[in-house]
């Protein structure tokens, strides 16, 4: 499902080395290291409070790191924040548009803030209107726009000055699936054009569209790879898909069974993750003895969610550093 990587020679655009940020005793980001290449869609996954936004804020030069180093577009975040700000686009988690201004007025203002003016501003404004599909709505106040349009406009604003890197902090929260799909088409185009896209999300669907994903949990980076590699690393034989006449009852039955790590409902099928291949054989028996024999049982593929639940569980079982 993940898109093909661009063929150009790798070139590191964002890098972090042992990056940490503490707020008092609380460690928001704990010795995180990674590199992002040009044209890559780099997904940053994790629950709320995992440290995603803090990391992005450090990379954008909005927050100084407590220790470690990071660079964006060749500039150090701690000492060259002003230079970084001319080379990045940032779309914040909270709304980064003025609701009481029209589409055009927002584009003009953000263009001005990004130091564009005159003919260049006009041409980039035209580009953003076209890219966001907002040409007809240019005089509409942002507060009257549907969520999906707003998100595309916010992205357009963040890209006015042709930044080599864009940071998108949970860009598609509260947007319907169709609008989300359009937004991601836009991101694919950008990446294909050589823009590096750094995006945080807690949606697995969105993560599937990233070239590589990093999983953050409690400030630490627990996993970082392509979706395919992450799934391939999942132990074989531990995932089962089964059909049952009463899937909910079957699910409830399995949830109390030892060795079952996770049970989820996908349509009329029950998705089961067990802790070892040996345990998989006992699932059918457990269901039968509970009075819910499955009509079909076959090996399943791990979902990204399965992978992350396992990674987090393993990290929790591991003694702390």
């Amino acid at each position: 499902m993940s898109a093909a990587r661009p063929a150009a020679a790798p070139e590191t655009v964002v890098s972090a080395r042992e990056l940490s940020r503490r707020f008092g005793d609380f460690v928001a980001v704990d010795r995180v290291s990674f590199e992002v290449e040009r044209g890559e869609i780099f997904g940053f996954l994790g629950s709320n409070g995992a440290g995603k936004t803090t990391t992005i804020r450090i990379l954008c030069g909005l927050l100084a790191p407590s220790s470690g180093t990071a660079s964006v577009a060749g500039f150090d975040v701690a000492t060259e924040a002003a230079r970084i700000k001319t080379r990045i686009g940032y779309m914040s988690q909270r709304f980064s548009l003025y609701a009481d201004l029209s589409v055009d007025e927002n584009l003009r203002f953000w263009g001005g803030a990004y130091r564009l003016w005159g003919a260049e501003l006009e041409s980039r404004r035209g580009w953003a209107l076209a890219a966001a599909g907002l040409e007809e709505l240019r005089s509409t106040l942002v507060r009257e726009l549907p969520g999906g349009y707003r998100q595309r406009l916010a992205l357009g604003c963040a890209l006015l000055h042709r930044p080599p890197v864009v940071f998108l902090d949970e860009p598609t929260g509260g947007v319907d699936p169709e609008a989300r799909r359009r937004f991601w088409d836009l991101i694919d185009e950008l990446a294909a054009g050589g823009t590096t896209v750094f995006v945080t999300t807690h949606s697995m669907d969105e993560a599937e569209r990233c070239h590589r994903v990093a999983l953050m949990h409690a400030g630490r980076l627990l996993a970082l790879d392509t979706i395919r590699a992450l799934k391939a690393a999942f132990p074989a034989g531990c995932v089962l898909d089964l059909a049952s006449p009463q899937p909910v009852a079957a699910m409830t039955l399995l949830e109390g069974t030892p060795g079952i790590e996770d049970v989820a409902l996908f349509g009329d099928r029950v998705h089961v993750v067990v802790d070892s291949p040996e345990r998989a054989a006992g699932v059918a028996a457990a269901l039968a003895s509970g009075g819910q024999p499955p009509t079909a049982i076959e090996p399943g593929a791990p979902s990204l969610e399965d992978v992350f639940i396992k990674v987090i569980r393993d990290a929790g079982a591991r003694p702390g550093p």
């Binding site: 909005l62 940032y90 779309m91 909270r94 130091r115």
Partner: peptide, 13 residues
């Protein structure tokens, strides 16, 4: 309050 300050700070303004 509206969160736009964060976005402004990320610009060269």
């Amino acid at each position: 309050e509206r969160g736009t300050m964060e976005s402004l700070r990320a610009t060269p303004l």
